[in-house]
């Protein structure tokens, strides 16, 4: 596990899961890759398959159709895997918490299948790209602590 953890924090490959977002969080994630922020400097790369991913960037509220698919995606990802709940929708449900189609925020959906999942919350509607980068940095710090304890 500790080898996995130290490998994980070197160069985080992320997979983007859009549940039912308003696109804004998704656009801000894409923004991270473009010249202004350019997170590839830090080795953060958006990958096309969940099998290659070290982290899932989940945006949007989880509706009834998406929930089983999100859980399936999480189970398919190689562990250890960090889940980033990006945006208020993913963190708490935002406006949509009272919607009839709401199936719980991201953490609840993920913890149903893996109670020990590592979940990082990046609130904001949408969070600024800087906030997302800071979320990743904090996650790396957290993984360091975890490794020290082991």
């Amino acid at each position: 596990m500790s080898l996995g953890l130290s490998g994980l924090k070197k160069s985080i490959w992320v997979y983007h899961v859009a549940c039912s977002p308003c696109n804004n969080c998704d656009i801000e994630i894409l923004d991270l890759l473009t010249p202004r922020f350019d997170v590839e400097r830090f080795g953060i790369v958006l990958v096309g398959s969940v099998r290659h991913a070290d982290a899932l960037l989940v945006t949007g509220m989880v509706n009834r159709q998406v929930k089983p698919r999100l859980q399936e995606l999480y189970l398919q990802a190689a562990k250890p895997c960090v889940v980033f709940a990006i945006g208020s929708c993913a963190v708490s449900g935002n406006f949509f918490r009272r919607s009839y189609n709401m199936a719980g925020p991201v953490d609840r959906a993920i913890k149903e299948v893996d109670p020990n999942a590592i979940i990082v919350y990046v609130p904001g509607c949408p969070p600024k790209p800087e906030a997302m980068i800071s979320g990743v940095v904090k996650a790396i710090g957290f993984l360091d602590n975890l490794k020290a304890k082991k």
């Binding site: 039912s20 308003c22 656009i27 159709q65 009272r98 189609n101």
Partner: peptide, 29 residues
């Protein structure tokens, strides 16, 4: 219909002042 969040229904439960805040979250662009 895969991104159904029930916005029309939610809007009918918000006050007139709150509605624009919800409505701008239909689409981020």
């Amino acid at each position: 219909g895969w991104n159904h969040r029930g916005i029309e229904k939610l809007s009918q439960g918000l006050t007139w002042d709150q509605v624009p805040f919800l409505i701008e979250r239909i689409c981020g662009i």
